[in-house]
Computed example of a mutant assay.
Amino acid sequence: MDDNELYPIGDVARRTGLSVSAIRYYSDAGVIAPTGVTEAGYRLYDVRAIARLELIRTLRDLDATLDDIRQMIDGETSLHDLLATHLELVERQERDLRARRAVLRTLVKQGGTAAQVTLMHKLVSMPDEERERLVDDFWNEVGEDLDVPPGFVERLRTMRPSLPEDPTAAQLEAWIELADLLRGEEFRGAVRSYLRDTYGTFPGRRMAAAPVWDFIHEEGAKVGEEIVEAYRSGLPAASPRAQELVVRMANASAEAVGGQATAESRERLATAFLLVEEIQREDSHEEARYDATHGRYLSLVAVINGTPPAGDEEGPELFAWIAAALRASAR
């Protein structure tokens, strides 16, 4: 293509993919002027005008307005600034569409009503401050005069949802479900009842005490990961490595409550693990109750925060393995 050659509007239309009427429209609107005109009044364009028309088509495809394009061509706005502005617009539209998708998917699953449409749109567009207030109201009601160890509800309260600035559809759907649950009296009552029954009496009450709870979720969690890894590897419970791990766990557990582990205490701990194994094998009701109450809260919070918890795939077999390793270490 010759830089100095002038091309009729039909050729320009074929080169740019614009219609002849669109090129005339941009010319009449003052966005791009023809380079020349024939004696018969036909418009002519050089390669620079064709390049600008191709850019105009691209920008229009990105929903840039004629005023935006005119300002850029006139030098009032740089191409970079124009593109940055429209990138921000497209990203905002993408977030809005993602939110709508989450609402629609939830409504389709639930067979939603008109009232639910309004509610779910409100939940998705809820400001951060209102989300925080909803979570605080939930824990305030759940924890009011709850007969559990001091500070326990406050520790549970720290595990809360934090919806990111640019959430995925899955995070939005999880937030919709959680927010709907948090607002419901039935869910609040069910969580309160579960926590009272589980952590208001022995042995849960002892587990909920600050030293033991901190051990379970800090030092105990570290050695627990090693124990799970050893179990998954097929290591025999009576092996020296398995005994070393459970002894470390027993020692750290005893230190957390100001005691010292002995062979007798490891035997008692083994009995406790076997009791937990038996409960897990025979009492599916409590597991289902957890999954429907506090467990559901925690799983949704994990999805919203982008940190889904690892599933407990081992089940009661792991507790039996730990008990066997503890008894081997106590001999």
Rank of each mutant, 00 (worst) to 15 (best):
E130C: 10
R57D: 12
L300E: 07
D28A: 09
N305H: 05
A272N: 11
D128Q: 10
T35L: 07
D68A: 10
G36Y: 09
A179Y: 00
F273T: 09
S21M: 07
M207V: 15
T35D: 15
V153P: 07
Y26M: 01
A325E: 12
E186T: 05
P316N: 05
G315P: 06
A174V: 00
G143I: 04
G315R: 04
E264D: 14
E173R: 03
I32Y: 03
G75S: 11
F202D: 15
V301Q: 03
S233W: 01
W139H: 08
Q110A: 14
L300W: 01
E88A: 13
D68H: 03
L55S: 14
I216K: 09
A272Y: 15
T106G: 08
E317L: 05
L181K: 13
L123H: 06
Y45M: 02
D74T: 15
R14Y: 06
G41A: 12
T35A: 12
L18G: 05
R266A: 03
D166R: 13
Y42S: 14
A170S: 10
L245I: 06
L119N: 08
V247A: 09
I23Q: 01
A208Y: 03
T201R: 12
R131D: 04
V37H: 10
I56D: 00
R92A: 12
A242T: 07
E219G: 09
A323Q: 11
A51T: 14
F152S: 02
T65L: 04
N4S: 11
L59N: 05
E267L: 11
R205W: 07
S78I: 00
R98Q: 02
H80N: 14
V276Y: 11
D28H: 12
E91P: 11
D61H: 12
N4V: 08
V12H: 05
E130F: 04
R48A: 15
W321A: 05
R14D: 05
L245Y: 05
T118Y: 10
G189A: 07
L178G: 00
L89I: 13
A174L: 02
E185C: 04
R160M: 12
E39Q: 15
E282W: 05
R105A: 11
V124C: 04
L134R: 07
